[in-house]
């Protein structure tokens, strides 16, 4: 389905948030996930189903002062 991930529209196979994290190559890194501005905690990621047109943000830490 079509999703907007980190500002870019893409065709994704994943149907859950957890599957999308794997598809985006973010398994090994600590990420926060937002779906349509809601933070999805780790415990909910396997169960949270994605819908066509959802906006997803994958966020991680950066160096900064």
């Amino acid at each position: 389905m079509k999703l907007t991930v980190n500002g870019e529209e893409r065709e994704c196979r994943a149907r859950t948030v957890l599957a999308l994290i794997e598809e985006m190559g973010a398994c090994a890194v600590r990420v926060a996930v937002l779906v349509n501005d809601d933070v999805i905690p780790a415990a909910q990621r396997a169960d949270r189903i994605l819908k066509e047109g959802d906006r997803v943000e994958l966020v991680t830490f950066a160096a900064g002062g």
Partner: peptide, 22 residues
Amino acid sequence: VTVALRRFNRERSEDDLAAPLL
């Protein structure tokens, strides 16, 4: 120690800052 936030980027995943800090 302060850190900032950024969008995850597969090409920059070598910058996993959190692990050594945590």
